[in-house]
Amino acid sequence: MIRALISRIKQGYRTYPFPKKEPVLPERFNGRPVLNHDKCDNCRACEKACPTGAITSQDNKVCIDMGKCLFCGDCTSACPKGVIEFSKDYRLAANIRKDLLVSDKEIKLAQAIDKQSRRIFGRSLKLRQVSAGGCNACEADTNVLTTLTFDLGRFGIQFVASPRHADGILVTGPVTENMRLALKKTYDAIPSPKFVIAVGACAISGGPYIGHTETSNGANGIVPVDLYIPGCPPHPYTILDGLVTFLGRR
């Protein structure tokens, strides 16, 4: 026992004061893409390089769909002009699917739920996690939020062991054919009102598995999604920011 106490002192206090203090992200972190349209000569090399079809050209302007983007940087290597850059901005969550499209400078961040919902869920949100073909990276970076570095519990958010105890689902993965029914049943088992949070490129659009007959191109056709958190996988702070912003806590 004394050993555990000494260890506790040695390991120290490690919870990061988020959101009061902005997190420190890795130097090479790929966050929200930034487009320099004036450099673009419409060669479309980025479109061809993109593995998931996240890049399209709209009115001769490059547009990146963060819901499909793997943040792999294949486009930046392919572009000879440096049109596409990835910033360190980790705040990527959005409420509406089309808000994930990046073309102009304008950034549409997720909005908090309405006042009445905040009264109910603002300090207590219980989620059921369903992995539906996820590769265990989104799952791992969601799970890590419960460790003491992030300490998700201090925001009143908790992952629960039964849909009957939950206020919503956090879904990961492209929703495989083999998980479609289980996801639907889990959703139906949660009492209303309820939320669905789609985490990762797979759950939003199918990610690398977009167009496979074995998957459903994300959760949206099966359950109604209220919050999209893009990334492959999203950084834990991207997920945490999404959840906390959604609850109107930052």
Partner: peptide, 15 residues
């Protein structure tokens, strides 16, 4: 498409 293959590998088992 060839440019997807490496991403399948990276997500075959994401951990």
């Amino acid at each position: 498409p060839q440019n997807r293959l490496i991403h399948y590998m990276e997500t075959a088992a994401g951990d």
